[in-house]
């Protein structure tokens, strides 16, 4: 065996060893980042643009290829997740609160503020519930449980949504709002600051902002921190112009309760007062200084003649 032949075989062996030492992601080479946040009110193109911008940023920061994927329905996101085509995703507050399988919350969108935005049933004009009863309510497809959020969160389980409205679904907030503006629906679930609409209910939902979550536990742990750092340094386009901040998953878990049937607690009454003797609960003001007693006999004037 010649030296050249030997060195060629060594190269192949070394290459094989090196390849086996790389992590799976490195091996897959592509990191998938998804986007499902209909409440951002973006058009499909804007959604794709936004996630592509984020993917490119992450790729630059991490030095690894990142693919951005935009979803219309959560089901597609789930399918890609199961196929390991996406490892992390930017998900809207509604869906993020109700979904399972979240490994870690990496960052939350800073644009809507740390506390998120207030949502309610919005109408095109000032009206009341009795007037719009039986008409079409447009619900953006922000979450599979969006109707529960409205019925139990906004209406506090007082009344069935289907008894009040004909419920119609829209793929996104943009189209749902447009349906109300165009008169196809009388009301829509939308942020209270939506231009041209007025609240129909006296109650609002405080929806947490969209968050970037790690969905796959396969992602190498050493990548989590660079990934978070990269997210926090991101300044996006239209909807994510303010970038991301750190957040807590508990906020979303708390909001998740809003989609469950409201069950009111029975409240105990305070026990009776202590059986203390009367007059002991004295206000400080009633504590008066005592005047010295007059001992009349001692203080009588010396008997003096007139």
């Amino acid at each position: 065996m010649s030296v050249v032949h030997l060195s060629g075989r060594l190269f192949i062996l070394a290459s094989a060893l090196l390849l086996s030492a790389l992590p799976a992601s490195a091996r897959t080479a592509k990191l998938g980042v998804g986007l499902f946040a209909p409440e951002l009110g973006l058009t499909p193109y804007e959604q794709f643009d936004e996630i592509d911008r984020l993917a490119r940023h992450l790729a630059t920061e991490l030095g690894t290829p990142v693919v951005g994927r935009s979803y219309k329905v959560p089901r597609d996101l789930g399918a890609d997740l199961r196929a390991n085509r996406v490892q992390l995703a930017l998900i809207g507050g509604f869906h993020l609160s109700s979904m399972s399988g979240v490994v870690k919350l990496l960052a939350v969108a800073a644009g809507g503020g740390a506390e998120g935005s207030r949502w309610s049933l919005m109408a095109a004009q000032q009206t009341n519930l009795r007037a719009v009863r039986g008409q079409v309510l447009q619900l953006p497809n922000v979450s599979p449980a969006v109707a529960d959020f409205v019925e139990h969160g906004l209406l506090e389980s007082n009344i069935s949504l289907l008894k009040l409205f004909k419920v119609a679904s829209s793929p996104g907030l943009f189209s749902a709002v447009e349906a109300v503006r165009l008169g196809a629906a009388v009301a829509v679930l939308a942020p209270v600051d939506t231009k041209g609409l007025v609240p129909l209910l006296p109650r609002t939902l405080r929806v947490p902002p969209p968050g970037v979550v790690l969905l796959s536990s396969d992602l190498a742990p050493e990548l989590v921190e660079p990934l978070t750092r990269a997210l926090l340094s991101y300044r996006g386009g239209k909807s994510l112009a303010s970038g991301f901040v750190t957040g807590e998953l508990r906020t979303y878990q708390g909001f998740a309760a809003a989609r469950r049937r409201q069950r009111l607690a029975l409240v105990p009454v305070a026990p009776e007062a202590l059986p203390l003797r009367q007059g002991q609960w004295l206000a400080p003001q009633t504590v008066a200084l005592e005047l010295p007693e007059l001992t009349v006999a001692d203080l009588f004037a010396t008997v003096r003649p007139p």
């Binding site: 389980s157 007082n158 009344i159 409201q262 069950r263 009111l264 607690a265 029975l266 409240v267 009454v269």
Partner: peptide, 19 residues
């Protein structure tokens, strides 16, 4: 005798779907 009992009864009605 206990006014709060009314609220608690109300809560019960709410819970059983009698808003």
């Amino acid at each position: 005798i206990v006014p709060l009992a009314l609220c608690n009864l109300a809560a019960h009605e709410q819970n059983v779907g009698q808003p």
